[in-house]
């Protein structure tokens, strides 16, 4: 093979290799990234309420610098609850008020469930995120006379986060929107508590 032929072959092989590297890198970015929402949300796992991600500016108080959303909506307060289902099912409870509220459940691959306050029953929205095994267990332990109002969502992955968004339609509602985000509770449903409840 002529020297030039070798160089052309090497260049072609390099281009094919570049394509493979490109695809591998793009696919690997979500799991390797340290700035993604899931990694940043992990700090909220110990909290029992939603961690504010984007707090709206109210009057003289500007929006705090904790915001890490690239281009946030200036009239929507955002909070986040990370979950790890290894510790048990995650219960997210929100009281609905005058402001529009939505909950979205994100896994590593993206959001797989979202619900707004229109689905609330008597002003309360209860979301329970569980694995398939925990779901089966919950079904088996269920008392048929005691109707559960929980919305049960089966997650395919153990780790993820729940995003709370509250829309402040008017600047005067921003304070209330910030408080509504903080008021959402995210707790781990411990099986012992459930057993005690059904036993008693």
């Amino acid at each position: 093979m002529s020297p030039r032929g070798r160089l052309v072959l090497a260049t072609l092989a390099g281009l094919v290799l570049a394509g493979l590297v490109h695809i591998a890198v793009v696919l690997a970015i979500p799991s390797l990234s340290e700035s993604d929402a899931l990694t940043k949300a992990r700090t909220s796992e110990t909290l029992d309420h939603a961690m504010p991600v984007y707090t709206l500016s109210t009057g003289i108080n500007p929006a705090p610098a904790e915001a890490w959303l690239p281009i946030p909506d200036p009239s929507v307060a955002v909070g986040i609850c990370a979950y790890n289902l290894a510790e048990g099912p995650m219960r997210v409870s929100a009281r609905t008020g005058a402001l529009m509220l939505s909950l979205a459940v994100h896994g590593r691959r993206g959001a797989f469930y979202a619900v707004t306050d229109q689905a609330a029953v008597r002003g309360a929205l209860d979301l329970v995120i569980l694995t398939r095994a925990q779901y089966d267990e919950a079904l088996a332990n269920e008392d048929e006379n005691d109707v559960s109002r929980d919305v049960r969502i089966v997650a395919t992955e153990r780790e993820g986060f729940v995003v709370v968004r509250v829309v402040a339609a008017l600047p005067s509602q921003r304070q209330a929107a910030n408080e509504a985000v903080q008021a959402v509770s995210c707790t781990i449903d411990s099986p012992t508590e459930d057993a005690a409840k059904s036993g008693g």
């Binding site: 700035s35 993604d36 929402a37 940043k40 979205a104 993206g110 959001a111 995003v163």
Partner: peptide, 9 residues
């Protein structure tokens, strides 16, 4: 670090 809007949201 973006949290995109989900379809139902």
């Amino acid at each position: 670090g973006e949290i995109p809007l989900a379809v139902g949201e």
